[in-house]
Design a binder for these strands. Structure first.
Lengths: 214, 214
DNA sequence: CAGGATAAACTACACCGGGTAGTTTCTGAG
DNA sequence: CTCAGAAACTACCCGGTGTAGTTTATCCTG
């Protein structure tokens, strides 16, 4: 019967979610088996079902958790690069590179995002919305807030910070994301840096103040 | 044993590839069953295996075919909007809207692309490369050629046509593609038009000649 | 040109080995 | 006495094959 809630020993639960993240990220939802997840967690299948009602519940749970964690990671990268900007072009490019690496690294950080994108047609609308809200939408909002500050300091000319954040993301990130199929295919580091650089160039042609646009 | 080649009655073969495109697009590779494909084609399962060695061969075959067809569709849209440009902003936006609709329509045109993106980790590298070459890469090249012509006419200031084509695609298309998860989630028509409009605005701020940039 | 033989292709259906989600039962440990 | 481990069990579904009989196209013969 097992509630979806916090039944059972917390450390087992942690091991299960960790294992599920790994296996779902590696195999995708359909291919991943509950046996494999239990084995990866070093736990019996009985224990898995003691913590999570069924496969779908487990998947959606780790998906949401992963989304929030990744958003937190990106938020930290933003703080690192955009809180104390001295060289705008350099800092924007630095954030772009770090974010691309964080999301598209072979590790399971972004791998689960691939699984969600693959399974999106079979995810309930409200859960999908929650995932978006905890992940991409939140990051976009964070970035927009940073751009607003930078505009206030006269470093950017931004009328619609949300739009600027989206276009920055498109120009510096989505090209790599698409090329690497969201991390499934490796992309060389220098390629990531090159794309970040030309993306920031383009971004600054749109939003840079004259002092920085050249 | 059935070769992958041209064995069997051509019309049956056509029915099978058509059905496979539909079912793979709707269900994804793993969920789609050969029984379902045979049923959809109105053909016995044995006939399917008479034409295609196995499930993977069938999938990769229709994937490649679909990629080429979609490229041809987009090529036609480019010709329609960009061969005789009179109002650059309007024509660039018109192409963006039409392409987004063509690729992201609920119909199976782009649905198979979702299946490939979902399965990309399990696709042989050479087949993936062929798919890219017949699809996205080809479209990018076509678009770059058009931009070069427009630059020659003094309508755009373009040093690297390939880069301009990629950035145009990012700014006017990838935002919608991501938002709709490549067609899995519907996007309102006016939203597509809005994104195309602001995307073209940004693009022209980067590449427009002074006469058209305002 | 008619028509029947021939070979290739297709259908229907049963079948196999294997794998899956989820449940249950029994056992042992804290 | 409660919870978790181990493993077997149920009730499927899937990819792929084998077979026996039927359709379809082709072509040769009269």
């Amino acid at each position: 019967m097992a509630a979806t809630g916090g039944t059972g020993r917390p450390e087992k639960r942690k091991a299960i979610t960790q294992a599920a993240t790994t296996v779902f990220g590696r195999e995708g939802y359909v291919r991943a088996s509950m046996d494999a997840i239990a084995a990866e967690a070093g736990v019996s299948k009985r224990t898995v079902y003691n913590h999570f009602a069924d496969k779908e519940t487990l998947f959606l749970s780790v998906a949401l958790q992963n989304s929030a964690e990744l958003t937190e990671t990106i938020r930290a990268l933003m703080a690192k690069h955009l809180d104390r900007v001295v060289d705008l072009r350099r800092d924007l490019a630095g954030f772009a590179v770090d974010r691309a690496r964080a999301v598209l690294s072979a590790g399971e950080h972004g791998a689960l995002g691939r699984a969600i994108r693959a399974e999106v047609a079979n995810i309930p609308a409200d859960v999908l919305e929650a995932w978006l809200e905890a992940g991409p939408v939140a990051s976009l909002r964070d970035l927009a807030a940073h751009f607003e500050v930078l505009a206030g300091r006269g470093l950017l000319t931004v009328e619609d910070p949300a739009l600027a954040a989206e276009q920055y993301t498109l120009l510096t990130f989505h090209g790599v994301a698409e090329r690497s199929f969201w991390g499934a295919v490796p992309v060389a580091d220098e390629e990531v840096e090159r794309i970040a650089a030309v993306g920031v160039d383009a971004f600054l042609q749109i939003y840079g103040t004259p002092a920085v646009r050249d």
